[in-house]
């Protein structure tokens, strides 16, 4: 009997716990090589905004030790173009499509939600944590109040499940996560990139952006570990996953699914590799499903 890797995220059933992270795989209409769609649970699009955004001028990326810094700046063609020209292709190609959105104001979030909710989307991911975006000198997910407010107004507009992606750049991520849950979040994505800086002395300039890659895995694990204790909604764990064992670590500390990010750039066959390792791990340890290992090295807090 073949083991399957099915999981559920709230009401959403996924074939696989492997989710393609926002910003890594373009808008999803590109012909991405090396990915077997049957082995992924869902794709999250690059973040869409209300109007088209040109993105940041160069420099946009720089390699660091065991990672990279990016400051792409949410280059995207806007929600109207996306829904008309890109989304239909994406819908045909992937079984589960999560659309990542962001806005400059509460009103923009609400307007985008109205537009995307007209189509069959499996979930909306709120990018409240893009460190490349200045929203009143603060990211939404750096404030419990703002997080609560935005999540709540989005939830009032749609019946589609809402994933809230949080930044690790806060004093206490548990508080923000609780606010997101109280606002009505169905799922959490942890973590977005960590603020970082690289110096390109050949070109005598700095790259001030978000750090990703294997160097941030311990931070991602810690955030998932802490937040799992205090919320009752599922968590998609991400940050520095480059192999199956990294994915297993995230499950053990409380993630229900895991996100594949910039590790794909290093190893484009990462999905196949992780999928295989997960199957072997379940078999070897006599787990019947991924569900059985979620939070095994963690526990929920009764009174928080």
């Amino acid at each position: 009997m073949g083991l399957n890797l099915e999981i559920t995220l709230g009401k959403i059933k996924l074939n696989s716990p492997l989710i393609l992270c926002s910003g890594i795989f373009g808008f999803g209409n590109e012909n991405i090589k090396f990915i077997d769609e049957r082995k992924i649970g869902a794709i999250v699009t690059k973040t869409i905004t209300y109007e088209p955004w040109p993105g940041n001028p160069q420099p946009r990326i720089y390699e660091t030790n065991y990672g990279m810094i990016n400051r792409i700046g949410l280059q995207n063609p806007g929600v109207f173009y996306f829904m008309r020209n890109i989304f239909p292709k994406l819908r045909k190609k992937y079984k589960r499509v999560f659309v990542s959105i962001s806005g400059r104001s509460e009103k923009e979030f609400v307007e985008i939600i109205k537009i995307v909710s007209k189509k069959r989307i499996d979930a909306i991911e709120l990018n409240l944590s893009c460190p490349n975006f200045e929203n009143e000198k603060k990211m939404i997910s750096q404030s419990s109040e703002l997080t609560f407010k935005i999540v709540k107004s989005v939830k009032n507009e749609t019946d589609i499940p809402v994933i809230v992606k949080l930044t690790p750049n806060v004093t206490e991520i548990k508080e923000i996560a609780i606010s997101a849950e109280e606002g009505g979040a169905d799922i959490l994505s942890l973590i977005n990139t960590i603020k970082g800086l690289a110096v390109d002395f050949k070109k005598m300039r700095v790259i001030d952006g978000g750090l990703s890659g294997p160097s941030i895995k311990p931070v991602g694990l810690k955030c998932v570990y802490d937040v799992y204790k205090v919320v009752n909604i599922p968590i998609i764990g991400m940050g520095g996953i480059t192999c199956g064992l990294d994915a297993i670590e995230y499950f053990l500390v409380g993630a229900s699914a895991i996100g594949i990010g910039s590790g794909f750039y290093s190893n484009p066959q990462i999905i196949d590799d992780i999928y295989k390792t997960l199957k072997n791990f379940l078999r070897k340890n006599k787990f019947k499903s991924i569900r059985e290992m979620i939070g095994l090295l963690n526990e929920k807090k009764e009174n928080f």
């Binding site: 910003g23 890594i24 795989f25 373009g26 590109e30 991405i32 090589k33 690059k46 993105g55 160069q58 420099p59 946009r60 990326i61 720089y62 390699e63 990279m68 990016n70 792409i72 280059q75 910039s262 794909f264 750039y265 484009p268």
Partner: peptide
Amino acid sequence: ENYMACGMGLCYGCVI
């Protein structure tokens, strides 16, 4: 030439 990450048109890091 430019610095690149993905090399396959996905990350938008190498734009001009």
